[in-house]
Structure formats: structure tokens, C-alpha cells
Design a protein around this nucleic acid. Structure first.
Lengths: 243, 243
DNA sequence: TCAAAAGTGTTTCTGCTACACCCATGC
DNA sequence: GCATGGGTGTAGCAGAAACACTTTTGA
């Protein structure tokens, strides 16, 4: 039997890119932790930590996520594993990166109870310098989000459970950094038939209140079963007719 | 300074799903190794091994790949990291899985020099029982391949450098388990303008010889720069008109 | 001359794009 | 009554789907 302990082992951590979306500000943010120890003291970093010996990777990522946000039932998906030998000056540390999606409008306290560390949401385009290779991780997570939102119904994870269509549109526009034509966007989304139209409207807006919708996973399952396409391209503006 | 060696560390390995495509047989295959030791003695397994302490993950995967195939310049991409605590009965082993794509027609000896171990190509739908969670890994790799080939030009990695369009079509049909209409397929591929039409034709075929093409990465770069879409959907058969 | 695959053009239809106006509400 | 966003219908067009025949070659 060839046992494994003859080999020196890298340390194994999980890091999380926790995306939060603020519907009011139309702002996509990331949760970062201010490091209090060396190395990279006083740099901001992705939340993360060591994987326990008897713990699944997903579980470890989930645990870290809950420690930082106190939230449950969060969308969490493995992103990529980073293992450059010099990524941590203390020694060999391989990190399995995850990304998570949450809404910043579900009246959450946004608790940063993470044992007195300083935790903050940073707008995706006003990021501070990051520790380690965390800028790379964040960059990859953003690309993944941008790619995946176009063909998988993960955008809803960033919204409150009930939302008007305009908020969904703003979300797509914020993440994909583009614009959609209102009528076409609504038509497309509604034609997918994955939303439930609610008997509720927005409250307290200084104009006509919009109807609220919610995402219906069951309808989505149906869609997948019938092998329909969820797909959403940015409208690539056709050349305007010349005249 | 909080050092890391207080934490027990999982062992870290890389495993590779090495896809090979045989154009003649129109067959997608995977390279497997027969295990000679416990556990899972006499089971087939994905090639893999431990990550060295000063070695990048990609490098480790590449090294394993070359040890098994003797090939260089191979398409290789990280797939997913598997870390269920019980996936290896010997103890905690976390494995970073990669997948690779090669052509089985480039007149390669298909050397399995891997230190006298038994290595074989298995057709993707005649797989033997696999060791560990390797069936899961393989399954995920296949899904990834099927997904990615539709919007990234990775299919060419599975073909000889020069190929007729029909071979490309067969490749897509084999991987996606569907059929394309010949004229539409050619039109679509050629309209992408990522192929170079060669002044050569097939040799030794018992019928009209087809013109050969080669993939042109430079043309593809252009395509990407102009943000065109590489995209290839299976034709979702429209209902035939009723009459 | 036959078998086997290469190669090609056109019509039909779907779904994306583009576009402008009225509606409801709060202030 | 006005400002603000909510909400809708339609025409045009690009591109996907559907379809059948001729050409070349080797055996």
C-alpha cells in the first residue's frame, strides 16, 4: 500500500467572493475583510479560512460564509482553485475559491460579526488594493458571474424575493455593463415563463407602483426539462439604417 | 503571525480526464489507468498524482499528462476540485481535476509508458467501473466539454491539424449526441471565418476527396476582438408542417 | 456504372431589434 | 398638473431551419 504521508502537503483554504447587490443604488458589491495580521496587514482580503480535516469543501465555504454574513440558504458555487506556489509568502497555500450571491435589500442587518474584524461591502468598481492574489480571484468571479447570468437563472439570487421587472433589468445592466431596451427585455423575460406574477405592487415609490414578480424554480425546472434555452444576450445594436 | 502548521492538512492531488477523439471511428474516448495497488486494486482510474510542494497546479497536471501520453502542447484546463472527506478510504485527499483534449489521429503512438502500468483508451459510452469518485469527475468533465464546445473553439483540439469539414461535423455530433444538417453546419462554421482553407484534400478515401481546413487562432482572436459570437446550437427540430 | 461522400442555393419562418406613446401615482 | 417611472404593440430584418440535387472519385 502506498500511503500518502510521505508527501509534504500544501495548506488548504477556501476563499469566498461574496457578491451583494443593492437594488436601490443599482450597485454590485463585494464583501471584504480588513486584515489585522501579517502578511498584508491592513490590506483588504476575501473572507476565507482553513478547511477542516473532516469537512467537505462546500461545507467549509458555507461555514465561512455564514460566519461572515450570518445568512443561510445562500447561492454558493465553486469557482476555481488557486495554487501558485508563491501566492502566500508564508508558504504553500492552495485555495479553493467560491462565489456567493445575496441581495442587500432583504432587510438584512448585513452583520459583520466576524470576530471583531473589520468587514465592508465595496462597490465592484471602487475596490481597494487586495491581499495575496485576491484581485485575480475577484476578477475571475466577476467574469463567471457575467457569463453565467446570461444563460442561467442566477440573477434572482441577487434580488429580494419579490421584485419589479425594472429591478431585474437594472441588475442585468449593472452586471453586464450595458443597456437593454425595456419592452424587449420584458418580453424576453416573461416569455421564458419562469416568473410568478404576484398580486402585489411596490410600496412607497413616488410614482406609479410596479407589479412585483418572484422567481419560480419549479417553472424553471420545467423549462430545463423541455430543453428550452434560457439565454439573454445584450442587444448588439444593429447598424442604424443609413439615409 | 498566525502560522498554518497548526492545522492538519489534506493531501493534494491532481487528476486528469484526458479526452481523445478518433475521427475514423467517430469515437470519443478517455484514457484510464488500471490500478495495481490498494484500494480499488484492479479498478480503472483517472491518471493523476500528488502535487509537489513547489509546483503550480497547472504544472502538476501537465506533468502527469505528459507522463501518461508523452505529448506536449496539449489543451488542458482546470475542471473542478473534489474534496468530499470520504472520497479516498486512506484518508483525506483533495483532488484538483483537469481535463485535456487530444486527437487520436495525429499519427501518435498513443504511448502508455506510464511505468508499466496498464493504460487504455475507453470509449465514452463503454466505461468500466471506476475507482474513487472518478465516475463523477468524468461525468462533470463530459458536461463541461459538451457545454464549452458550443461557444468556444475547443473542438479543434480533438482533431488532426488538417481536417475536412465533415470530420468537424462528426465530432460535434458525437460529443453533443445529435445531428446537424450538413449545409447549415458548413455555412455556420465557414461564416465564423476562423478556418483556413488549405490547398490540400483527403488522401486515400474511396470516394471524392474532401478539401482540408485548419483552425486559425489568429482569425479567432480577431473574432473575439470584434466581440462576435462563436455559438453553435444543436438545431432544435422545428415541428414539421402538418398537412 | 455504381457507391459514397462532397459540395452547393433558396425559401420559410422565428425571434431579435427598433421604435413612441399612454397610464398611474405621488407630490 | 407635472414629473417619474410603469406598461404596451408592431413592423422590419437577420439568421436559423428546412430541403434536393449535382459533382467527383475510387473500386
Amino acid at each position: 500500500m502506498s500511503y500518502t504521508y510521505e508527501y509534504p502537503r500544501p495548506a488548504l483554504t477556501v476563499d469566498g467572493v461574496i457578491f451583494g447587490y443593492d437594488s436601490n443604488e443599482r450597485d454590485l458589491r463585494v464583501l471584504l475583510i480588513l486584515r489585522s495580521g501579517e502578511p498584508y496587514r491592513n490590506y483588504w482580503a476575501l473572507p476565507g479560512g482553513f478547511v477542516e480535516m473532516d469537512e467537505d469543501l462546500d461545507t467549509a465555504a458555507l461555514r465561512e460564509l455564514q460566519e461572515e454574513t450570518g445568512l443561510h440558504n445562500i447561492f454558493l458555487e465553486q469557482l476555481y482553485t488557486f495554487g501558485a506556489p508563491d501566492r502566500d509568502p508564508r508558504g504553500r497555500v492552495v485555495s479553493v475559491a467560491y462565489y456567493a450571491l445575496i441581495s442587500l435589500n432583504d432587510s438584512q442587518p448585513l452583520q459583520a460579526d466576524s470576530d471583531a474584524q473589520d468587514a465592508r461591502w465595496f462597490s465592484i468598481d471602487q475596490l481597494p488594493p487586495l491581499a495575496f492574489d485576491h484581485a485575480d480571484i475577484l476578477q475571475l468571479a466577476l467574469l463567471r458571474l457575467q457569463g453565467k447570468i446570461r444563460y442561467m437563472p442566477i440573477g434572482f439570487e441577487l434580488l429580494p424575493e419579490k421584485f419589479p421587472l425594472s429591478q431585474l433589468q437594472h441588475l442585468y445592466e449593472t452586471i453586464l455593463k450595458g443597456t437593454f431596451e425595456k419592452r424587449n427585455f420584458r418580453k424576453k423575460i416573461l416569455s421564458l415563463n419562469i416568473l410568478t406574477e404576484l398580486d402585489e405592487t411596490q410600496q412607497g415609490v413616488p410614482h406609479r407602483a410596479a407589479r412585483l414578480y418572484s422567481f419560480d424554480p419549479k417553472k424553471y425546472e420545467q423549462l430545463v426539462k423541455n430543453s428550452f434555452d434560457f439565454k439573454l444576450d445584450l442587444e448588439r445594436k444593429r447598424k442604424p439604417a443609413q439615409n
